[in-house]
Design a protein around this nucleic acid. Structure first.
Lengths: 189, 189
DNA sequence: TCAGAGACTGGCCGATCGGTCAGAAAGTGG
DNA sequence: CCACTTTCTGACCGATCGGCCAGTCTCTGA
């Protein structure tokens, strides 16, 4: 046989394990030692394949980041309503494709998103948030957009629900949440 | 003067600074050194006032945790609709009272909530989530509840919006998001 | 056969982590 | 004045962190 059978590709395996560990224990909470142990190699091997721990994170989040950039670009020419609808479906699908990586970016730590690995990502999330808000600057619309955006990302990470079912539920809640506040239900009190 | 003027209460100051740092950089991302430097005392002083770093976290989150327990208890006797309404308002107010601490609990790391400092907190968040979902076990309802719960907590942490305005916006988006999926808007595609 | 390349590792580095401890400094009551 | 408590600190601890490096494998092509 031409390919070693015990491990097809150490580099990919490192990425896979790192994605799991980062998502579960956090970036700072995961050590290279932890990843190496799970992969079944030495810590030095990690740093042979990757320049640094940060480099692992960067490569891990790169695909999701570029897909986000594409989504935002595709949204731009659309009118407000169409952009909102496309943003909801596009983002839900994107997040479901990259559950762990997406959750990593929004790990609840404001500082985190400003790290070098995520440089240039912030404008895209802001554009997406604006699309969610129907490009309104109203506080209610912006807050709703932020709740939906962060809520979706946080939820998908450790749920074991079926993807199709999850997708439908996420799109549903996003549509409802992002309805114009004037269409809001029983606005008593 | 009877009280030293440069610092009223070192212990309280430590808690205040720790709350800021934890919320901004994360629990694991904040060292005792960092906190001590900001407070203006030595690291040993932190550990004179608190048994450990975990103890700081525990004391920091204790008030919010007990208030959550009270809220959940108050919800229990209510019928489904009333419980949902009360849960929304009660939780939004609770989170606004404890912005940084609440965000700390939901720091995006699944592992985190299982830490000793938060022992016994999980059942309460689950009960609250159930109330959000109108005590329905349907996937759509549960997912919506989770999105709202985590979204709210994540949003409040680093926004500088006015509390009253934020409160109205959060309650609004929560009500909309938690509408029964059957009342959902334009369910095309 | 052997030189070279790629994959990998043990051992080590300085830095920093949370935490301990003996003791200094500053008040307080007798 | 002294004994005592409270508050605080510098020095230090073992462990672990991310990262580095010399060297060891295995495979491959000339």
């Amino acid at each position: 046989m031409l390919v070693p059978m015990v491990r097809v590709n150490t580099r990919d395996e490192i990425l896979r394990v790192a994605a799991e560990q980062f998502a579960h224990t956090g970036y700072k909470g995961t050590s290279l030692q932890d990843i190496a142990a799970e992969v079944g190699c030495s810590k030095a091997t990690l740093l042979y394949h990757f320049a640094s721990k940060d480099a692992i994170l960067a490569e891990l989040t790169a695909p999701a980041a570029s897909e986000l950039a594409e989504l935002v670009a595709a949204l731009e020419p659309l009118d407000d309503d169409a952009a909102q609808a496309a943003a909801i479906e596009g983002f839900v699908d994107l997040v479901l494709r990259h559950r762990r990586e997406a959750a990593l970016v929004y790990s609840g730590i404001p500082k985190f998103i400003t790290e070098p690995a995520f440089a240039g990502l912030l404008p895209h999330t802001e554009a997406l948030c604006a699309a969610f808000a129907g490009r309104s600057a109203a506080v209610a619309a912006c807050v709703a957009a932020e709740v939906v955006l962060t809520g979706i990302v946080t939820v998908v990470i450790d749920t074991d629900r079926d993807a199709a079912e999850l997708r439908a539920a996420l799109i549903g809640v996003a549509r409802r949440a992002l309805l114009s506040p004037s269409d809001s239900p029983h606005d008593k009190d």
